[in-house]
Each structure stands twice: as structure tokens, then as C-alpha cells.
């Protein structure tokens, strides 16, 4: 039993946040222009090895105070890159990849979720929500907020409904570090909502779940 990944979509069908945990089949990095900046550093078009991305807005040093800033996806090329640059062949050997670039995958997930939501709504004849589906290897959970944000989580198929976790994620980290964060432009269609505090908080929450092994 485990948790594989989390996608957050806004009401304009765009993926604004992505996080993965124990995926054995990684998505390939998105194609250029396929996803917004600040969705997830692990799948954005350019791979950078710099641990501390250069952030033009981050004028305070981290020693002088708490900065809940927005992560920049495209660090300045002049910033110090730490560690050797891995060459692409060896990297692909380390992680088997699904063959789908991330932007394609994100669109497919969204398409499935929306189609199923409409199907359930049509079949029930009332405003009933789609909750989850499962296949032989994974289970997809959906929580949709009143404002049209969709939280989608992929887990092991034997896990019970994780809707309450997605709800907690919305009422906890999301409200605290995204909605109440003036540096995160919501509904902008220009960039995602990824920032250090939100990511850390979501990570801690998921790793604390009893189903996360």
C-alpha cells in the first residue's frame, strides 16, 4: 500500500501542481511550453541540478526571516550548480519511464476525471460526485472544491477512499500556503502554485498517512 502521485488542476483545466512519491514508472519531463512554470521541478522541461534556485523576488536572505516565496522553475544559468551533470542515457537507465511526457499524462488524467465526473452526474440524474476508480495496479481519487480546483491522487488499489485526505490537504496546506500566500497568483493561467512551504507541508502530510509505506 502506498501513494503514488498527486495532481492539482485549476478550473481552467490546467495542471498547477504535481508531486510524486513512490512511482516506479516516472513520467518523462514535459515538452517545452507543455506545462506552466512552477508546477513541479521534477517534470519541468529543463532539468537543473542547482539546489537553491535563483529567485529574483527573493530579496531577503533565508537567514534574515521566513520567506514564503514562489519557487522559480527556471533558475539563472549562472547560479552555481552543485554536483555533476548526469548525462541523459545513464539517467534513463536509473528510472524506467512511462514513455508519456508529463504534459500528455496530465491531460489524460484530467480528461479521464472530467469524463467520469460527467458520466456519474448523467447516470445519477442529480449532482452526484465521482469519488474514485481503480484498475489492477492503481486507484485514482478525486476531490473537487467549490472553486473548481480538482485534487487527484493515485494510490495502491487496496487503499480505502482518500477523499478525506484530499479535503484535509485543501483545508490545510492549500488554504494556508497557496490561497493566503500573496506571492502565489491564483487563476493566472501563467504559472502553477508550487512553493517550498506547500510542497513540504503536503509531503509531510502524505508521509504521515498510515497507508504510506
Amino acid at each position: 500500500m502506498t501513494i503514488y502521485s498527486l495532481y492539482i488542476y485549476d478550473r481552467h483545466c490546467t495542471c498547477v501542481y504535481y508531486h510524486d512519491w513512490q512511482r516506479t514508472k516516472q513520467a518523462r519531463p514535459a515538452t517545452e511550453g507543455g506545462i506552466l512554470p512552477a508546477v513541479s521541478q521534477s517534470v519541468s522541461p529543463h532539468k537543473h541540478d542547482s539546489v537553491t534556485p535563483y529567485n529574483p523576488r527573493n530579496t531577503l536572505s533565508s537567514l534574515s526571516g521566513v520567506v514564503i516565496a514562489v519557487n522559480e522553475d527556471h533558475p539563472n544559468p549562472q547560479s552555481n550548480s552543485r554536483g555533476p551533470t548526469p548525462n541523459p542515457p545513464s539517467q534513463s537507465q536509473q528510472q524506467p519511464q512511462s514513455g508519456l511526457p508529463f504534459d500528455e499524462e496530465a491531460k489524460l488524467v484530467y480528461g479521464v476525471v472530467i469524463s467520469l465526473r460527467n458520466m456519474i452526474r448523467k447516470l445519477s440524474g442529480k449532482d452526484e460526485q465521482f469519488v474514485n476508480y481503480y484498475t489492477s495496479t492503481y486507484k485514482l481519487h478525486l476531490y473537487e472544491t467549490m472553486s473548481g480546483y480538482k485534487f487527484v491522487m493515485l494510490s495502491d488499489p487496496n487503499v480505502d477512499s482518500l477523499r478525506f485526505v484530499l479535503r484535509q490537504m485543501y483545508s490545510g496546506p492549500f488554504l494556508e500556503y497557496v490561497v493566503r500566500n500573496p506571492l502565489v497568483p491564483m487563476d493566472s493561467k501563467q504559472r502553477g502554485i508550487d512553493n517550498e512551504y506547500f510542497r513540504t507541508s503536503v509531503d509531510r502530510m502524505v508521509r504521515g498517512l498510515s497507508v504510506f509505506l
Binding site: 514508472k25 445519477s124 495496479t137 492503481y138
Partner: peptide, 15 residues
């Protein structure tokens, strides 16, 4: 869409 290994298609959809 399987995040791990090859998968069957959807088996159960819950509302």
C-alpha cells in the same frame, strides 16, 4: 496512466 508496471483498464468506478 499506471504509475507502476502495466495495468488493466478500469475495473470499478465509484460514485
Amino acid at each position: 496512466l499506471s504509475p507502476t508496471g502495466s495495468s488493466s483498464g478500469v475495473q470499478v468506478i465509484e460514485g
